[in-house]
Design a protein around this nucleic acid. Structure first.
Lengths: 341, 341
DNA sequence: TTGAAAGCGCTAACAA
DNA sequence: TTGTTAGCGCTTTCAA
């Protein structure tokens, strides 16, 4: 290990608006106007100013600007701190979408890790005015965070759906998607199918369940004969349920997300049960693991990054006082693969 | 879709330092001092102020504070924008470590997505003084970003190693780890082993290669007889290499990271080659996929979150003018599993 | 121990 | 079209 030590010296010889003004023999106001484009400045002056700041690398301080405009030029991206490994890529990609759109508006993105029942970091960021707006990455059925944001008065948008009437919501069209995939499976001749679902406190899981039920009903199957398990996204539960379903002669297991599906696949592999020969498998959420599985898994495909960028776009529109749809649903694809052949 | 629209009203009835001062019949200076703890204030006054702000929910504006102190109370976390799916959990966990430590110092974290040859977002954040310091999530052999940070004068810390003498570096002890795992494998009696590696432009990959070579030499094997493939983290390359190695009677394939290992496993599964009976497998980087594989894969285990928090700690120490080690290596574990039995 | 006043770097009325 | 002036909300000399 290198034992050498380093110490920060620090420096601050940044050029400021007054320097530019002085050098050019104009007022600070003029410089400010030339840069922002607000107010009238002659073409010549403007060109002169722009040339100068370009050459001398002048960058207006967003802190000073922020002080007078009460803006931070940051938006907050709220991520669940307890995301499991399988959730991470989803949130990461959403975040990329948010960041991309934010950059277009010269905004940066502050990450706020929030745990389901500790939102102190969110509170801090909002109360301390560290951000001008918030994108919430996931909604819960009974979401204190949404309540808090609503009360705080800060502009916010949620990804996913919320029972809160006031929230601007961007979501995948889970209900149509799940309904469609379920219908398709039944149309392929499957009569005995079952659904294994995750945390029933997540809005998305309730929505998927609803979509599944609609699909079943649409195809005229008796819903009361169909097994639906919720809160089963752990190995022990899955183990149990799969055993039960196999016993029962289930033709197709529909998994609510990729994590559950992965666990089902592991279980079936351990038991040497062949897909799709002995049982068919489908998933309401796709992931790399599922699509590279042998056989690949029939599933629904969404675009998380799109979700992030649309949400961020909506947030900016809202902040700028434009009218914004209260709820926007993004499209999906049904991907039929070998697991339901 | 809900067609209702929503429009932002906006509000700003926040209490400020002057209000507190007036209400208490003291000066703004006194309030400021009572809060910051700097300068002398009587116990009573201090208590009075603290009680008042607590009761009335006063939050000093970090923007105003920032303006006078030239601070943003934000640090920048630089993530490669082109991270592949397998990298994501690593960076995400690192980031969590960074965020946790930052929160202790009342700092927030700004995410900067930087692509290998486009670092405009990093430049913008630094030039616009959006952050007080930077944690760089990955280093390249020839890293423009490190050069830029060095020249800019902003405090920064890199995760991973950098040829740059001036950079404060926090890294896993890849070289010892890889050397140790390689040695252990050879001590188990393996004589014919091979290494499949990724992007040779990543510092970490060069380091792992070096560790592998040291392990081979330590055990007295002839390095020139050992096959080492670099830049092979794609399916076609892996396909080819594995065929070659099997032909060649290789006893053990060592994979430089979990992504490569995953591809090797897929390939072997397709070809119905059994692990560890027909070939043994080890990986220089662990992940959930590998540890839940059947059989579980022998690998090296690190703690990405620790990496993030140690890096962030070092950054703060440096910003506060403390002495900081130029390079710090974190420990690892060798996890022996069924894949090399 | 406290306060008055200046100023951080910028923008935005209001004048000219 | 341009400049003057007054802040934004806080901290920090300097003086009391």
């Amino acid at each position: 290990m290198d034992e050498r030590v380093i110490r920060n010296i620090g420096s601050s010889d940044r050029i400021k608006i007054g320097d530019v003004a002085e050098a050019l023999g104009v007022s600070k106001t003029t410089v400010s106007r030339a840069i922002s484009g607000k107010g009238r400045v002659s073409k010549d002056t403007r060109a002169k100013v722009l040339a100068y700041i370009e050459k001398h690398g002048y960058h207006p301080s967003p802190i000073a600007k922020g002080l007078v405009q009460s803006k931070t030029y940051n938006i907050g991206w709220v991520m669940p701190g307890d995301s499991t490994i399988t959730d991470l890529p989803f949130f990461q990609r959403c975040m990329m979408g948010v960041i991309e759109v934010a950059a277009l508006e010269n905004y940066d993105v502050l990450v706020l890790m929030v745990f389901d029942h500790d939102m102190s970091s969110l509170e801090r960021a909002v109360m301390n005015q560290k951000v001008d707006g918030i994108v919430l990455g996931r909604t819960l059925i009974d979401d204190e965070r949404v309540e808090f944001l609503k009360d705080s008065g800060i502009p916010y948008v949620v990804i996913g759906s919320s029972p809160n009437e006031d929230a601007i919501q961007i979501d995948n069209d889970h209900i149509s998607a799940c309904k469609e995939l379920t219908s398709v499976l039944i149309m392929k001749g499957i009569k005995k199918l079952a659904l294994i679902g995750g945390d029933s406190n997540h809005v998305v899981n309730q929505t998927r369940k609803k979509g599944f039920e609609l699909g079943v009903e649409e195809q005229g199957l008796d819903l009361s004969q169909i097994k639906i398990y919720m809160d089963s996204d752990n190995e022990t539960a899955v183990e149990h349920i799969v055993d039960e379903l196999i016993q029962d002669g289930t033709e197709c297991i529909v998994c609510m997300d990729d994590k559950i599906c992965f666990q089902v696949l592991e279980k079936l592999r351990r038991d040497n049960i062949l897909i799709p020969d002995q049982i068919k498998i489908a998933s309401f959420y796709n992931s790399d693991i599922l699509s590279s599985n042998q056989p690949a898994i029939t599933s629904l495909q969404y675009d998380p990054k799109e979700l992030g960028s649309v949400a961020c776009r909506a947030l900016f529109d809202f902040m700028e006082g434009k009218e914004v749809l209260r709820k926007k649903l993004l499209s999906y694809e049904v991907i039929l693969k070998g697991s339901t052949k």
